[in-house]
Design a protein around this nucleic acid. Structure first.
Length: 656
DNA sequence: GTTCTAGAAC
DNA sequence: GTTCTAGAAC
């Protein structure tokens, strides 16, 4: 759009081709007429119904006229139904360096369109009266919603009259230039819809956190889409990072970014005040990449930007995020392609969300830096660098990037980190040499892995059984309204069963809160009952009852597992460490924590990579076979910690 | 040579 | 989560 190209420092004012998309009676012509009342920009309405000397004409006539209008410097409305991709494709091709192509979709209820068409008289295309209903219905059956990958640089959906009114306003306002703002100024909260301008009044940063956005456009253009990143200030709200120090960092980062990368020009940055999830619909800005000031668990919720973005994107973003990473280290970023089904993708044209985690100065959150601003600034700088690199990778070729960047560790293992970065950078560099299209929706698809809710198909098995135990009678040992008990399909010990929670949306320990205390107690009791049953058969069996900190499979499940670990299915380090390190959270501890603090502590997945230690004497073993042969005969008592609070469940007569 | 791990694919 | 397998470790 004009305002966008101006603020990004480009001299040319782009013309626009707007394809109205909607059945007869959806208000296409009215839309055009309303916008054209505005004096700001010359428009030409190209209506197929009248193009032929007042009579209906052809698509090619419309195209021809569109080209002529564009030559005259006008922007054009393509006022025809444009209901499927094929009907639209020729018009989309009108886009180029000087011309953007937009879609305005009038998705009003069919009833509304039909009744309007039926009632109206003197319609240009003579579609009125009784015939209209049949035509509208037929058209709606074959309609195909537009996608960004058809070549639109912007798609606007209108579901009701208010949406239409807003859209009219947006297009009517095209013309007046937007001021380029001083970078990262503290700004007062301006209602998002009222203005793109930021005032310079300094007020409390927190109030503005959600609405303060900076935009970057690399100069390299791909087709008619200008890759654009919108990002909030990182670490300043929830993480209580001093905003002045933060603003110094980001300017430094930008200068550095500018110096090191020719394709980012710092002149293309500006600040926008508004809702980051409505940049397009409210702000009229086109940003295809959103940065999210994420939390380390990459979960929705919290406050501000993170909550807003996850809410606007819906479960699709959660799913896509899960497919890339489970957690994030401070200073790191992870690029998540948004599925085209996502509302943010469709309505706002967002193709990628980049989660960034900055340093934390908030004592109530993990990795609290205790006002160590030396360290904090370093991490913040790193965070912005990661963000820009991530953004660059979306401009470059996505498909060459690692499918999943594993940042599942909270530890400060520097060596491991730099190793991983090297790997990641290597792949990025490689990607840069491939001059492929950017931001294509299809890039987001990852090799056939179907993800309904962030879990691969294999990870849904427990969920499926928990939801419908009656369909899996062959594997279900016991079920009630709240729980299902099954044998672990690959038992890691002589006795290994799972108590599944049946409640929807409690996928793992991290989703558990005070509301689930009863459920946790029932799961615990059921687990205890099975332990008793097993020990009645074999009194020498010793059990632990607990959860994995980060489960591989969806649906909260309690492991009831004997401590012999005598099983051919126990094959690797991850298996062993997931049951014998702090990654395994004893049910008694989980219950106590949820009762006292409203949530359970979880251990980082990093511990799974640690040494192989005997679960009794804690001796270290070089590999799994050696470890296994040791534990068969280790005579030691279990560690003291496990003998407390009934963490270890043994029959009194068998002392170990 | 064999054993074992770790990463990719599923 | 498992399976498969290349190549590291021995």
């Amino acid at each position: 759009m004009e305002m966008e190209t101006e603020v990004s420092g480009e001299k040319e004012k782009k013309q626009i081709v707007v394809l109205l998309i909607g059945p007869p009676g959806s208000g296409k012509s009215t839309f055009c007429d309303s916008v054209m009342k505005s004096p700001h920009r010359p428009w030409s309405r190209i209506c197929q119904d009248i193009i032929n000397n007042g009579k209906a004409g052809s698509k090619s006539q419309c195209l021809k006229m569109a080209i002529e209008s564009l030559k005259e410097g006008k922007s054009v409305f393509i006022d025809r139904c444009n209901l499927d991709k094929e009907q639209r494709s020729e018009f989309v091709k009108l886009g180029g360096p000087q011309v953007e192509v937009h879609a305005v979709v009038l998705e009003l209820p069919a009833q509304v369109c039909i009744s309007r068409s039926v009632k109206r008289s003197g319609h240009e295309g003579n579609l009125q009266g009784g015939r209209a209903a049949a035509v509208v219905n037929k058209m709606l059956r074959s309609k195909e919603l537009p996608k960004v990958n058809e070549g639109f640089s912007r798609i606007l959906f209108c579901y009701n009259d208010a949406d239409v009114e807003n859209a009219v306003k947006t297009y009517s306002m095209l013309g007046p230039p937007t001021r380029i703002m001083n970078f990262f100024k503290k700004v007062s909260a301006v209602p998002a819809s009222s203005s793109n301008e930021a005032t310079n009044d300094a007020t409390t940063p927190k109030a503005n956190e959600k609405t303060e956005i900076v935009r970057v456009s690399p100069s390299k253009k791909l087709g008619s889409v200008v890759p654009t990143l919108a990002f909030p200030s990182i670490s300043t709200a929830d993480f209580q990072f001093d905003i002045d120090k933060a603003s110094d960092i980001i300017i430094l980062s930008l200068v550095k970014a500018k110096a090191s990368r020719k394709n980012i020009d710092s002149g293309r940055f500006f600040t926008f005040v508004g809702d980051i999830t409505k940049l397009h619909s409210q702000g009229g800005l086109h940003c295809n990449v959103l940065a999210n000031a994420a939390n380390w668990r990459l979960k929705p919720g919290g406050g501000g930007v993170n909550a807003a973005i996850f809410k606007a994107a819906g479960p699709d973003l959660e799913a896509a995020t899960r497919a890339r990473a489970n957690t994030l280290l401070p200073g790191k970023a992870v690029v998540v392609p948004l599925p085209s089904t996502c509302p943010l993708h469709n309505a706002e044209g967002i193709t990628h969300v980049i989660h960034v985690l900055g340093p934390n100065m908030n004592p109530n959150r993990p990795n609290y830096l205790n006002n160590d601003y030396t360290k904090g600034c370093k991490i913040l700088r790193e965070a912005y660098t990661s963000l820009f690199e991530g953004f660059l990778s979306t401009v470059q070729d996505q498909s060459k990037l690692p499918k999943r960047i594993n940042q599942a560790t909270m530890s400060d293992s520097g060596a491991e980190d730099s190793e991983r970065n090297k790997k990641y950078k290597g792949l990025q560099d490689k990607a840069r040499t491939n001059n492929l299209e950017s931001g294509s929706v299809d890039d987001a698809g990852d090799s056939g892995k179907k993800m309904s809710k962030g879990w691969s198909s294999w990870a849904l098995a427990l969920h499926i059984i928990a939801m419908h135990p009656e369909k899996h009678e062959n594997v279900v040992l016991e079920s009630s309204d709240n729980i299902v008990v099954i044998n672990d399909q690959y038992p890691k010990a002589r006795k290994h069963v799972l108590v599944l929670a049946r409640q929807e949306s409690v996928d793992g320990l991290e989703d558990v809160g005070s509301a689930n205390i009863q459920l946790l107690e029932e799961m615990h009791d059921v687990g205890m009952k099975w332990i008793k049953r097993f020990q009645d058969e074999d009194a020498s069996l010793i059990f632990r009852l607990g959860y994995h900190s980060v489960p591989s499979m969806r649906q909260l499940h309690l492991h009831v597992i004997s401590q012999d670990f005598e099983s051919d299915h126990l094959k690797n380090k991850k298996h062993w460490n997931s049951f014998t390190t702090s990654f395994f959270r004893d049910s008694v501890d989980v219950l106590e924590e949820v009762k006292s603090q409203g949530k359970a502590n979880v251990e980082s997945e990093a511990v799974l990579k640690g040494e192989l230690r005997c679960n009794r004497c804690r001796s270290v073993h070089p590999n799994i076979p050696k470890l296994k042969s040791h534990i068969r005969t280790c005579p030691s008592q279990f560690p003291h910690h496990l003998l407390q609070n009934s963490r270890l469940l043994a029959r009194p007569e068998s002392s170990n």
